[in-house]
Nucleic acid binder design. Sequence first.
DNA 1: AACGTTCCCGTGAACGTTCACGAGCCGCCC
DNA 2: GGGCGGCTCGTGAACGTTCACGGGAACGTT
Lengths: 348, 348
Amino acid sequence: MWADNEQRAPRGDESGGGLRRRATIHDVARLAGVSRQTVSRAVNDKGEIDPATKERVLEAARMLDYRPSRFARGLVRKGTVTAGLVIPDLMNPFFPEVAAGVLEAAEQRGWQVVVWDIRTDDGREREALDVLSHQADAVVGYFKNDDDVLARHLGGMPLVLLERGPQQTRFAAVGIDAAAGLEQGIAHLVRTGHRRIGMLDGDRLDAPGPRREAFLAEARRHRLPVDGSWVVKCPEHSVAGGEAGMERLLAARPEVTAVFGFNDLIAIGAIRTARRHGRQVPGDLAVMGFDGLSLGELVEPALTTLHLDKRRLGRLAVEQVARLRAGEEPLTGADAWVIPELVVRTSA
Amino acid sequence: MWADNEQRAPRGDESGGGLRRRATIHDVARLAGVSRQTVSRAVNDKGEIDPATKERVLEAARMLDYRPSRFARGLVRKGTVTAGLVIPDLMNPFFPEVAAGVLEAAEQRGWQVVVWDIRTDDGREREALDVLSHQADAVVGYFKNDDDVLARHLGGMPLVLLERGPQQTRFAAVGIDAAAGLEQGIAHLVRTGHRRIGMLDGDRLDAPGPRREAFLAEARRHRLPVDGSWVVKCPEHSVAGGEAGMERLLAARPEVTAVFGFNDLIAIGAIRTARRHGRQVPGDLAVMGFDGLSLGELVEPALTTLHLDKRRLGRLAVEQVARLRAGEEPLTGADAWVIPELVVRTSA
DNA sequence: AACGTTCCCGTGAACGTTCACGAGCCGCCC
DNA sequence: GGGCGGCTCGTGAACGTTCACGGGAACGTT
């Protein structure tokens, strides 16, 4: 006499709305007149079941809109791994590409990935970690917060930091060899006759990031007439940010003859304001980016840049997670670094 | 005498590798000399616990590298919702933006989102659904497969289709009002004197998609001298695809004077080959895109396009999922449609 | 001295599934 | 007619956590 089981149909009237209790395996078993185990056999189509009863069970399941609880199932069947991926800003074309790498590698291992878009609000990093620490088995991503803060919020979960050099953190990391990149980049600029080179840095913090440090180091090495006053910070890692930054650089150092962008977006912004100020690119001003977005081939002039294998970055990160989980030593040094490759187009 | 508990440290030697059994709440309880419940109180920091014992428990948890099982926890605490998001191609800047909308709306509801990148391999749609049907509570995404195939692979899960008009599917959907968009677009082209208008379609199938149909309808309405032979298919939704398609369109219909792209990427490709063929844009050939990627402002000439609120698309999809889950009627008609808005820049 | 409060802590039960085992039934062969 | 093997199906137990209780100790109040 429990025939009033809930049907799957929306039943719009059913005033009060709200979800009914989800049907469990017991409900299906009762409706089909069999035991739990038989239901389990039917829905997971194992053998040991009569085709007729199987069909009857499946029908019952359909009527009750039964779906097995992934929690109960996960509790007894081990092996489902969920990784968290934390990304600063999905609107920046750089990140979808590393995300693609992460997704690809994760899928190969049979893992699933839950994604968080921080939207460049550092505070949200902590929220992300708080929920992820409950729902994921490991986390990879970009983080601005300090190691301590992160540790506090991830409650023991393995963490792989993106683009923090393995030296800059006590977590596993995969980084970018900014020094190697800048070496190629600055060398190319110097080779083509530039000495008054500025930089549009992207770091929000006061502490200089690896790219700025490498830039300054190369400047010293080549004895360029360049110091900290030649780098201006672009808090926004976007074309608009680059435009604004270039505006300030031009004001501070009008004699600048080449400029290095923290990333391709910023570099493109630099090109735009340079042109707006009547400077030809690359004639009056050479511009070099960093990242190697495919976007760079599309703009005018095509962007010379330090190209990065972003997909590989993502794949490496997943590999690090795997090592952590296996209790192995994470990769360090060259194995955990992606080195940029100079791609000369026309902007420099 | 169970003092040989596994430590968190990597212990590289431990030959044989592999994960030890994860520590459970019982292990922590025993090590700390308390009951499960007390451990639970400590790690979830509820009250009703002496600060001293709490610290002791936490220390024990740290030693054993204890992390609560999300399955066991989810089993008893209801309310964690996981949605699957299936995306054709993360490399196309269009999709990260709708993904951002989905993520944003999902997060507001406290849901998490696991993402699948299909990488434009329709076969992988099914794999994605197979996995997701076990691990998610609902799915939203782009799918090429037919309703039947989808239904078979998602085992009763609610599904929200992106960019299939609510009329074209029996699932809930959120779509794009291609007709309204094309009306504005073609009107603009006609207004500026064009009549020999071609289209670079993106649909892989032979059946014409909504955009092509709307294009053809508008062509008829304006009595343009244009038929099916003026639309060429670009199987690849990318700049390269657009370049190739434009090559063919130029060969088939050299008299073309304006071209409508399935997509901004394709439109940009069209611009590039047009120029390569010595045609000025928009002088000799007007080009119009569809999507309104921010990329379009960066290329030369800046792309005139039918701009879409992609974020809103994503948010709407999540809202549909919510309705489905609540047993309400999903949105239909204008409420579930995003209408494009003509953004005139310089390419047309 | 009895009683109420507050603070801390532990004990069954429940969540929904799968696993390991065993039982009944049927047909067949010796 | 007894035994044996192959199907089909059901029964406890276990997975790891939280919830709803209840209990004891310490302290104060009347």
